[in-house]
Amino acid sequence: MTAKQLGQAQADGRAPINRAEVLRRASVLSGVVVLFVVFSSLSSTFYQPSNLLDILLQSSISAITAVAMTLVIMTKGIDLSVGSIAGLSSMVAADVATSAGVGLAIFAGLGVGLICGFLNGVMIAKLKLPDFIVTLGTLSIFRGAALIYTDGQPIYGLPPLFRDIFAGQLLGIPTPVLIAVGIALLGYVVVAFTGLGERIIATGGNEEAARLSGINIDAIKVTVYTISGALSSIAGFVLIARIGAAEPIGGQGFELQAIGSAVIGGASLFGGIGNPLGSLVGAVTLGALQNGLTLINVPSFWQFVASGAVVILAVLADRLTRKQR
């Protein structure tokens, strides 16, 4: 952007967004449009309202983890353990729900998620271990814990109340969709209007500058990983409520969906940039891709390939537009 353009932007009082950012947003938007046009022309089911609602429902779980991931990515971190936390905390919740009651189950499951996230945060912030390795390690540890918990057995017979809360309907809208939208809105409010949000952005945007501004970097990091853990457990609740049973391997592969949704939604892996509402859109985009591929009978093995490729493309776009100088 030239000084002149900057001057014009000042004159009309808009925030100037650089050309690369406009290009990035335009390419995401046109990607979504192409996606809908292609799938709609290949399958007459795709654009039916019932299928579109289905897409929203299917994307709600990854949307919840994507909001969590967005906050983590904004601090220039990464959380690969979201799926394992979802798996472990939903096992605990299912166990408590079938034995002691739904209220206690939500409490226990959330508690497990918070503790898992807190452990990630402490190891990363206080012990100064690399986020990638810590959460790769806990991805395995929390999964192992979920398997040990019931010796690998699934838990059946979730109380109807639990299923109604996390996989029911309210005013004709599936509750998972409401939960996902609510969490994304909440995330947006935190990022855009609170001191915590600005501290998160500053930590990821320039950690040293944030530290020298008196911001407690370690506390911010522990906070985002703890939030990530809690949101992951909510994603886990939705998962088991929809299936009706908790499996120790539930939540596998969540991390890629979450990272992909966040990056498609505009979060930058270089830190300091992200928008939870954008991540919601990103999750729906990935969901629509998978739904469409299923409808046009692409074998599920190939869907793995497609999802991974799209995520890498999104990261490439981030790299090209954000690191250009």
């Binding site: 600005e198 945007g205 320039n206 500058a209 944030a210 501004s213 008196g214 911001i215 300091g272």
Partner: peptide, 18 residues
């Protein structure tokens, strides 16, 4: 050590006095 480049002037200004 001082500038958070992608952050707005306003947010950078307010960093110490949040």
């Amino acid at each position: 050590q001082a500038v958070v480049p992608m952050m707005s002037i306003e947010s950078n200004f307010g960093l110490v006095s949040l």
